[in-house]
Simulated scan of single mutants.
Amino acid sequence: MDWQPHVTVATLVENDGKFLFVEEIKNGQRVINQPAGHLEQNESLLEAAQRETLEETQWRVEILGIVGFGLYTAPANGVTYQRTSFFARPVAFCPEQALDSDIEQAIWLSYDELKERRAMLRSPLVLECLERYLSGHRYPLSMIYGTR
């Protein structure tokens, strides 16, 4: 089997009605995404979500639950991503943590502010994840089983 989806995680972090996003450069364009990235070898989904959030935003977070699971095939390269989206709360800002090289900045946006920037979204999953969360799609971490 030659085709394999890429396993990714994303974290929706809420604080006082604002949500943590990243502005990053992809294919020469500035886009907005949740802190997100690929699962690495010997890493759990939770560990990946915490690591990616810290590397991309300088925020250490507590993962509270799951928003959902999604599939997305990127039109630019035809790659299919299987994404587990988590929700979390911020625990500590860690300014000593360097941002990943393709991250321009971490930003806090309200739902309305994100919708105003819809044209900048890295994929439709960014807004869909937030809308699912706001409509009550919040599931326990016990949905995940297996250690890795």
Rank of each mutant, 00 (worst) to 15 (best):
G70I: 09
A36V: 06
T73L: 05
Y81A: 07
G70H: 12
D112V: 11
L45T: 00
Q58F: 02
A98G: 07
Q97I: 12
L71F: 06
P124V: 08
R122H: 13
C94K: 12
A10T: 02
G17N: 09
Q105Y: 13
G146Y: 06
E47H: 01
L12I: 01
L71S: 00
R118I: 10
E56H: 03
T53E: 01
A76R: 09
W59A: 03
E128P: 06
Y139A: 09
S44Y: 02
G65Q: 02
I25A: 08
A74P: 00
E131H: 05
G78W: 04
S101N: 09
N15K: 14
G146I: 08
P124R: 10
I144R: 09
Y81P: 00
A74V: 05
K18T: 12
N27V: 04
A119H: 11
Y111D: 13
Y72S: 10
L127W: 15
T57F: 05
P5D: 07
Q34P: 08
S101R: 13
E43G: 00
I32E: 11
E24A: 15
L114N: 04
E116A: 15
R51F: 01
D16L: 14
Y133T: 06
P140M: 03
E43T: 03
P140S: 07
Q58A: 08
R118S: 14
Q29G: 09
V31I: 12
E24I: 12
L45G: 00
F86H: 07
L141N: 02
A10L: 11
E40P: 03
R60P: 00
F93I: 02
E47W: 03
A92S: 14
D102Y: 13
Q4M: 03
R122L: 15
L45S: 03
Q29P: 01
Q58R: 11
A10H: 04
N42L: 07
I66A: 01
D2M: 13
L125Y: 11
S44M: 01
M143E: 10
I66K: 02
T53Q: 01
P75H: 07
Y81T: 06
Y139C: 02
G17L: 13
L99S: 03
W3L: 13
N33E: 15
P140F: 07
A88N: 05
T8I: 05
F86Q: 06
K115V: 15
R118W: 09
Y133H: 10
G78P: 01
R30G: 08
A10C: 10
K26G: 05
E104H: 15
T11C: 11
V91H: 08
K26L: 14
G28D: 05
I63V: 14
E43W: 03
Y145G: 08
I107G: 03
T53W: 03
R118C: 10
L12G: 00
Y139I: 07
L130A: 10
M120T: 06
T57E: 01
V61F: 05
Y133C: 11
E55D: 03
G65F: 02
R89I: 02
K115N: 12
E24S: 12
S110P: 04
Y72H: 15
P124K: 12
Y81Q: 04
T73A: 05
V22S: 10
D102Q: 09
R117A: 11
H137G: 04
L20P: 07
A119C: 00
Q50M: 10
T11N: 11
L45W: 13
L20S: 09
I66L: 12
L12F: 02
P95Y: 09
R117S: 09
S142H: 03
I103M: 05
